[in-house]
Design a binder for these strands. Sequence first.
DNA 1: GGATTTGCCTAAAGCTTTTAGGCAAATGCA
DNA 2: TGCATTTGCCTAAAAGCTTTAGGCAAATCC
Lengths: 189, 189
Amino acid sequence: MVRVGLSAERLTRAGADLADELGFEQVTVSALARHFDVRVASLYSHLKSSGDLRTRIALLALEELADRVSAAVAGRAGKDALTAFANAYRDYALEHPGRWAATLLPLDPETAAASAGVRHAQLTRAVLRGYDLSETDRTHAVRLLGGLFRGYVDLERNGGFGHSAPDSQESWDRSLDALDALLRNWPAS
Amino acid sequence: MVRVGLSAERLTRAGADLADELGFEQVTVSALARHFDVRVASLYSHLKSSGDLRTRIALLALEELADRVSAAVAGRAGKDALTAFANAYRDYALEHPGRWAATLLPLDPETAAASAGVRHAQLTRAVLRGYDLSETDRTHAVRLLGGLFRGYVDLERNGGFGHSAPDSQESWDRSLDALDALLRNWPAS
DNA sequence: GGATTTGCCTAAAGCTTTTAGGCAAATGCA
DNA sequence: TGCATTTGCCTAAAAGCTTTAGGCAAATCC
């Protein structure tokens, strides 16, 4: 009865890796137990439930993503910051499909409020400092950008326009150009 | 042993309703069997698998959504068409959360190619006829719009910015204004 | 009215989740 | 070092979902 040294953190990281390999949907307490060669029930000392596991993975992924984006936008401004943000976001999703899928998990309000999701909003807001927008318009723009990045990457990943011309990369670049132009010429109410 | 009159179509519709009530995640062959007061195994004459059920619901929702959008943009052009499209899309999602979640289900390439997803792209393209874009830029814009609508609505539904000021409706309206402005002044490569 | 098809049934196996209770390893403290 | 406590992983078991196999009765078709 050797102790493997489980902990919520290790399980979460292993779960995230499993998500990247097999898909977030496939991450289950059972699969994780198999991975550690341990009985399923043993994991319940560290995790409240299956949903708890998924939530922890989501929170981890949100932190990682915020860290990446934060590093990417540091020292940049204007369009430079915008594309750095967007590319950090998209690259993370392409490198870590399972973790990224986890970030889409709906969280209950308290959990969401304590998550790195708020950092994401702050980072987006920071990028928009490079553009001349009113406080309210900045909020609108934060939401627009958040929605666009999330939706574009999701569509791209799920084959929405994966293998047709022009290349998805090109549409992404042109969309960022367009977004920059839009933010520089944001229409008045 | 009275026959209830099951069929793939009835099961799919009932499954879609169940999704709207309980969430798409909760739609299971078991739950559906309970709903029809029938043994679980009986459903397997009509459905290949649990995934088959979910896929059918996704296809149904994509059709319904395309029908709505199609009706909304008929006879409109320019910004009028753009907002009609966007609002039809968003309203469907708000009215039918489970069905809408189903539209996000990743489909395998052949299924996707045969789905109403292609109508969505065509409808988006049709809306963009009201703007002066090159063929390639039109494709970029189709992808941008598709991503934005999908992502915005998803963020909105999952509490991303549900209960903070300003109202999500306002951000939506302003985003459509912005989008219209962008499409009228699409930046050159 | 009899043959065939079809629809729902029972049975059963396999997997995931979750709780309860137990024993042994690790840890803490004299 | 030696003992007590805590902690970690275990077995057992119940409950729910998925899926396949085989059967019987209702509907359908001459």
